[in-house]
Design a protein around this nucleic acid. Sequence first.
DNA 1: GTCTATACCCGGATAGAC
DNA 2: GTCTATCCGGGTATAGAC
Lengths: 172, 172
Amino acid sequence: MSERPGQIVDAARTLIEEGGSAALTMRALGERLGIRAPSLYKHFPDKGAVEAQVIALALRELANALAAADSLVSLAEAYRAYALAHPHLYRLMSSGPLPRHLLPAGVEEAAALPLVRAVGGDPDQARAVWAFAHGMVILELDGRFPPDADLDGAWHAGLTTFAALVRDGGRR
Amino acid sequence: MSERPGQIVDAARTLIEEGGSAALTMRALGERLGIRAPSLYKHFPDKGAVEAQVIALALRELANALAAADSLVSLAEAYRAYALAHPHLYRLMSSGPLPRHLLPAGVEEAAALPLVRAVGGDPDQARAVWAFAHGMVILELDGRFPPDADLDGAWHAGLTTFAALVRDGGRR
DNA sequence: GTCTATACCCGGATAGAC
DNA sequence: GTCTATCCGGGTATAGAC
């Protein structure tokens, strides 16, 4: 009963989660669905459209994972946990240009909202905290920190300072 | 008088700066040097070896650009300036796994040193500041911030907090 | 909406002559 | 150390039959 487009996006998501963005090819996607690659073009105009739907799905999922957080620290924990649980998906949604014209309206904003609220609405602070969190996560995923690095310590060092900033209302 | 390997790495660097990592192909590289792609394999075992040398070169260049900075703020300015001046090169050296076994010893550490010194030697703080700076830069390069975002403001918001952390010796 | 066949382009890399 | 010829693999996408 499920619709073909939905099945295709789900299969694409699985391919990416298993093997990274490069694993999403029209041939592999068709194979996983038991059809031939050319048939996919009856449902999506091109590969980019499929990929964009996976990104939209991931952004919604992330927004959902962040919704329950009620503090900067718990927000950061949820953010990191999602990224570590879905490394390839996180990379896809957070790296390179966003195909905004292919995304449903509001998806990007919804993913950003929890953070903006957590810092009290200041856009500069929200962007700074976002950059910190993204940097920590992507450097961890890319294996850029030394193997013995205490990442909890680094997160703590960053978060306590940002928390102080928020507490002071940005006046320092 | 210049050596072939050096010429090859320089040409590879130029290709990447002009067209991103994807523009570095053995064929394009040969063409730029006026030789055929197969000839390159007399000088390098494979493409990865060429790429690694470009990364090493970029890391040394970055380390050099940061050496003069004498404060957290000036360090951040130099870091951002280098990334914006060489976006593709910065992406290459900062994203994805580092081919450490192909890099000359000490190159990675040399690039990190100015930051470690600037925060007074605390590794957690250094990693937190690095994550913030990398996040700011890569999100800017990827066009992830709104076009009208005040990035100077976001940098300032982050840097002042980190500066306070450093000033307090990490006790907050 | 699925198929087969295929066009088209691109990549890394090797063999062997000179 | 350069060349030509070539292998081998992979990708997106289209045409046209069913």
